[in-house]
Amino acid sequence: MKYAKFVIIGIIFGIIMAKAELISWFRIYEMFRFESFHMYGVIGSAVILGILFVQIIKRTGAKDISGQEISINPKKMGVTRYLLGGIIFGLGWALAGACPGPMFVLVGYGYYSILIVILGAILGTFAYGLLRNKLPH
């Protein structure tokens, strides 16, 4: 069962996303109006601790369980694709109130209309695949 540990990580992820209300459309709306610290606290503390973890991994040269050196996929430098893609993502994030993680958590939470959002996200991904060579990157 090589996938079991990933299912367990997913369950922990789902519980934390739901219990901290990170799957709430309202929390996203509130964040973009700067009327609560909650979302900034979550992302900020995750990043600060994440920086610490990554530095520890890099400085100790830690290996993963299969003995490979650990690395986070380095993103090719550029501006256009990250800025334009980011803006398009942000428009959808604030409209649907969910990014790709919470979308799936909301299915389990019982709001099945989110399946339409997931369908839209798959179609959007597919459309990018079709248009990729015509877009500025």
Binding site: Y82, G86, G92, V117, G120, L123, T125, A127
Partner: peptide
Amino acid sequence: LLIGGFLVGFGSRYA
């Protein structure tokens, strides 16, 4: 719902 999801899917792959 559909457009919100579409923008998230398109934007995340573009970015």
